[in-house]
Design a protein around this nucleic acid. Structure first.
Length: 462
RNA sequence: GGCCGGAUGGCAGAGUGGCUAUGCAGAGGACUGCAAAUCCUCGUACAGCGGUUCGAUUCCGCUUCCGGCCUCCA
């Protein structure tokens, strides 16, 4: 099935035609590791994880290379380390580790490569030297700057002209820049800051060069997909394009540029500066990672998504329904007759520019079919449940044990079972007042009972 | 100011030039001692104004409102 993706460069959906189907290559801008990731930072991770899963399904697990970098040299890191009295190395190690753990909790597969900027300094220096040699960059007061006037297509991704950028400039222009839009490739580092020897003295890289250098080194000059948040279009991706294209003498760089929309809180962009953010770390204390993941996938990735408690509640409720049905199907003890294929509607939705809300509608269709067969044709239930799980696998959902999901760790399971036994004895004796009292007590502990036909009683946590 | 997006039923959220989105909430029914869960049934929503069309929520234009970017930002 052809995979269609919205390309920011052309502003339309395009069919993905891999450069090499035996090695489909994707690069996504990862975190700058100076602080815990907030839930807005997690959106691209989850979105591109779905794409990674879809690509692996289409082309085979061994035929997709996914690179997500870790920016571990940056001025905010230096500032944060200083403020906390922590070494830069400790700070970046600790933050990178927390990031990996948080993203794993959200069900994101590890990327194929997770390169660190500090491990690719020689590649960056080489690329900068090339840019100088080709006349695209110049040295000034210890800095190396990219000269955007040397790049005719500069501004194509963000669709803005040089004049527009100068008009809108809201930042003071450094006096050594030939053009206000020129950006830093290399800057000098004083002895107390991280620095590397280079032809231009001891210094550190500018922000944009790392992605150009690392994508080249791990994916080659030309690769299929480059992703990131909407706010990276300008200047980050625009500058990456300028660097890579000019270093590669105009040869093709990225075929499809993808950008996810923002998370909002009460309609406003979630951001560190506004202070209206929640870290994934905090959220995970209150909600299972899978609930957070589903909440993130409940809107289309290019649209803004308002993040709220209600959205999380709904996601939780949805997962409960799915797991309940899958758990019931397991109890029928029937066997699969066919391989577990994903529901067609789910595939169709995902291959149309990752339409996850529509895919979830497909999942509900499949759920409905499963519930209907549980009621009317239990011998078909196992197969329908397998379908649901297969669809879930593509979304990174529904892979847990249903009993565990519904009942939790259940160290008080014996007491609950005992209460249920007492209640059922009371029901048998038609002492419904006592039975209802026991049920109310359990409800107070967050335990919901479901009396099944045949006298059995199921329980789960609300 | 320049450049992008967006406006769908009580809420969330897809989509389509004419035909049910989906989920939650709500109403009725089946089942149940009562519930819960599940199943069955139920809501003519597409910001406003023009235009194109046999027909527009869907295409075009304008207006209003909301959000984002314009070298910190996923």
């Amino acid at each position: 099935m052809p995979l269609t993706l919205y390309n920011t460069m052309s502003r339309r959906k395009e069919e993905l035609r891999p450069i090499d189907p035996r090695n489909v290559r994707m690069y996504v801008c990862g975190p700058t590791v100076y602080d815990f990731a907030h839930i807005g930072n997690a959106r691209p991770v989850v979105v591109f994880d779905v794409l990674f899963r879809l690509l692996r399904r289409e082309y085979g697990e061994a035929h997709v290379t996914y690179v997500r970098n870790i920016t571990d040299v940056e001025d905010k890191i230096n500032a944060a380390a200083k403020e906390r009295g922590e070494t830069i190395r400790d700070l970046t190690e600790r933050t990178a580790k927390a990031f990996r753990e948080d993203m794993a909790a959200l069900g994101a597969l590890p990327p194929t490569h997770e390169p660190r900027a500090t491990e690719h300094i020689p590649q960056m220096i080489a690329m900068i030297a090339t840019l100088i040699a080709r006349g695209h960059a110049y040295e000034a007061e210890g800095h190396v700057l990219f000269q955007i006037a040397t790049m005719k297509e500069y501004g194509r991704l963000s669709r803005r002209t040089l004049d527009e950028m100068i008009d809108g400039a809201r930042v003071e222009v450094a006096p050594y820049k030939r053009d206000p839009g020129d950006f830093v490739l290399w800057k000098p580092s004083p002895p107390d800051l991280p620095g590397w020897e280079s032809p231009w003295g001891r210094g550190r890289p500018g922000w944009h060069i790392e992605c150009s250098a690392m994508s080249e080194s791990l994916l080659g000059e030309h690769f299929d997909i480059h992703g990131g948040g909407l706010d990276l279009i300008f200047p980050h991706h625009e500058n990456e394009i300028a660097q890579s294209l000019c270093a590669h003498e105009g040869r093709p760089f990225v075929d499809i540029w993808m950008h996810n929309g923002f998370l909002t809180v009460s309609g406003e962009k979630m951001s560190k500066s506004l202070g209206n953010f929640v870290t994934v770390h905090e959220l995970l204390r209150e909600w299972p990672g899978e609930v957070i993941r589903l909440a993130l996938l409940s809107g289309h990735y290019r649209e803004p998504l308002d993040f709220s408690a209600e959205r999380l509640e709904q996601a939780k409720q949805m997962l409960d329904r799915f797991y309940r049905a899958i758990g019931e199907a397991a109890k029928t003890g029937t066997r699969l007759r066919h391989d577990d294929h994903e529901p067609a509607a789910v595939i169709a939705a995902l291959t149309d520019d990752l339409n996850t809300p529509l895919a979830l509608a497909g999942m509900h269709e499949a759920l409905h079919a499963l519930n209907a067969s549980l009621q009317r044709a239990p011998e078909e239930a196992a197969e329908k449940a397998a379908m649901l799980r297969a669809g879930g696998a593509l979304l990174g959902l529904l892979q847990q044990d249903p009993a565990r999901w519904l009942k939790g760790e259940a160290d008080d399971a014996a007491a609950i079972e005992d209460a249920i036994r007492r209640r059922n004895a009371a029901r048998k004796a038609k002492d419904f007042a006592l039975a209802d009292r026991i049920r109310a007590e359990l409800a107070g502990q967050g335990i919901v009972l479901e009396d099944k036909p045949g006298g059995k009683t199921e329980w789960r946590r609300a």
